[in-house]
Amino acid sequence: MSAQHMICMHNVCKSYKMGSEQLRVLKNVDFTVNKGEFTAILGPSGSGKSTLMNIIGCMDNLDSGSYELNGIPIHRTKEKELARIRNHEIGFIFQNYHLIPTYNVMQNIIMPLLMRGQDRKTAERNCREIISMLGLSDRLAHKPSELSGGQRQRVAIARALCSKPSLLLADEPTGALDQSSGAEVLALFKKLHEMGNTIVMITHDMNVAKWAHRTVDLIDGELIQ
């Protein structure tokens, strides 16, 4: 693995049992992402994009092959350490935002820092700059249900950014947004990339993928570089 590589996957396979059949979702995937890259994984529905993202995000294990993130062999890492890696190295941005409905905006944003053991006040102080960059300063006491789709996604992005991860993982980040909100979020991604963040974005939309620095196609579980 090169020092430049943040993600280095080799021969990764993943299959699920569907009734009596074994469904091969990822087939011998080789995939690398360099530090500072903005990569889009483009593929139609059912091509295995989300499975690949879950494996990259250390939320699912692989059947065979190897996966290293920042030089850490994820395929051999225990759950406790994976939780730590998810907290420190990865910032997730989901299509459906996945905000906790009972917590307000601030509580949602600082949650990864609280998980890390920071006290509430320090965590809030550390997030202030990001919150202001994303224009959420006047929405901090609101519950997610009181926000628009674009605002919710910005909260999710703020949550992903506040822990200063080495990798931002976005799964269809504009999938639930209208066109203008989607464009706004993508512009934000571009800006984050220019700030030096490494971003891997999964999408089925060619127009969204265009925003990325590099696009790879995933078709029927096979990655075409």
Partner: peptide, 11 residues
């Protein structure tokens, strides 16, 4: 919610 907490590093 449990899934979210786990995704953001909850042990």
């Amino acid at each position: 919610e449990i899934g979210i907490l786990k995704a953001i590093g909850g042990s």
